[in-house]
């Protein structure tokens, strides 16, 4: 498709834990979905910035008021402050992607978490309006599916931070009955792991962020590829801890819900279609990187017949790339009327 130089298309994936952008100028960027404002004037002076994002925000958490604005359920305020945080996040992504100047027209497709934002898509549209001339909002896993061209006889399982979203594609826009959301996802694993580690190593000192990073580095299900050893401070002294068992248990805690939901969702369709879908399941989202997950699911689902599960090649940008593809493919007339 030839690109009109005056138009910039962008795809944004607003995630509970990470947000990403992909633009038709070729840029691809992501940031952890944390937004922090300096707590007071002094903090702002020290930090030298009015607002911080992602990793940097987390590192300076003590002098910041931190928001994870898209976090499900724990958005304590569905309020102005959360909205402001979402807006800052979008502004930041757009600046990172150098999508903020020199274009006559900017068109954005924004992917938002399937469940949590049902009522807030309009708010998202409003928040993006300052940065783009035309905006459409879509639900995640749908944009992921579009991006990898899994439009028919396919199923996407998007394992994010707050939720795991299931979506069956059968050649039309997925409706409510084609989708399911469960809370067994990345944050849930983190919670489990944290609890188990506290239990087993009461003296070890660690934060939820450390737990998440450990998971991201060593996550696995099934037989351990190798022992998982991590260094945790005990009374200030770095000490090695074996967390193999806990890592496995925590990661496996999301499996029953995933298998059941998958089976249940597939069971709603006619047998011929079921067979096709079973052979075209794609894991997406950060959680798709859990080692052994693909094999485990194939094994678990084989009970009902042969099946094939694959993992998306670029989990970090699956949503953003799909949204960009949608923006690029979207006919002008639809943009104009929207």
């Amino acid at each position: 498709m030839s690109e009109n130089k005056e138009v910039l298309n962008i795809g944004i994936d607003l995630g509970t834990s990470r947000s990403a952008i992909a633009a038709s100028n070729g840029s691809k960027e992501w940031v952890e979905s944390y937004v922090g404002w300096p707590k007071d004037f002094i903090a702002q002076k020290v930090l030298g910035k009015p607002v911080l994002f992602g990793e940097e925000a987390l590192e300076n958490r003590l002098s910041l008021e931190i928001f994870r604005p898209l976090e499900r359920g724990v958005i304590k305020d569905g309020s102005e402050r959360s909205e402001a945080a979402v807006k800052e996040l979008i502004r930041h992504l757009i600046q990172m992607a150098k999508a903020d100047n020199g274009y006559k027209q900017t068109r954005a497709i924004v992917g938002v978490p399937a469940e949590s934002f049902k009522i807030n898509k309009l708010a998202i549209k409003r928040l993006v309006a300052d940065f783009a001339d035309a905006i459409m909002v879509v639900s995640e896993p749908f944009s992921v599916a579009y991006g990898i061209n899994a439009l028919n006889n396919a199923m996407i399982i998007d394992i994010g931070a707050g939720t795991t979203d299931f979506c069956i594609m059968h050649g039309t826009m997925p409706s409510e009955v084609d989708q399911r959301t469960i809370l067994a996802a990345g944050d849930y694993i983190d919670q489990q792991l944290e609890m188990m580690l506290h239990e087993r190593y009461p003296k070890a000192d660690f934060t939820p962020t450390m737990v998440r990073r450990m998971k991201e580095q060593y996550s696995f299900v099934g037989e351990p590829p190798h022992p998982v050893m991590v260094e945790l401070p005990v009374d200030g002294k770095p000490t090695m801890h074996d967390i193999t068992k806990e890592m496995r248990q925590a990661c496996e805690s999301i499996l029953p819900g995933m298998v059941e939901t998958t089976l249940d969702l597939i069971a709603g369709f006619d047998p011929e279609f079921q067979k096709k879908v079973r052979n075209n399941i794609t894991l997406a989202g950060g959680g798709s990187q859990i080692r052994g997950l693909r094999e485990y699911l194939e094994g678990a689902l084989r009970e009902i017949g042969p099946c094939r599960v694959s993992v998306i090649s670029d989990p970090l940008f699956g949503g953003a790339a799909g949204a960009l593809a949608l923006a690029v493919d979207m006919p002008d007339e639809y943009w104009e009327k929207n």
Binding site: I109, M136, V138, Y146, L151, G171, T172, M173, L326, D329, M330, P331, Y334, K337, N338
Partner: peptide, 9 residues
């Protein structure tokens, strides 16, 4: 794809 794009719109 055509159906999807229209659906999103």
């Amino acid at each position: 794809k055509t159906a999807m794009l229209k659906g999103v719109y």
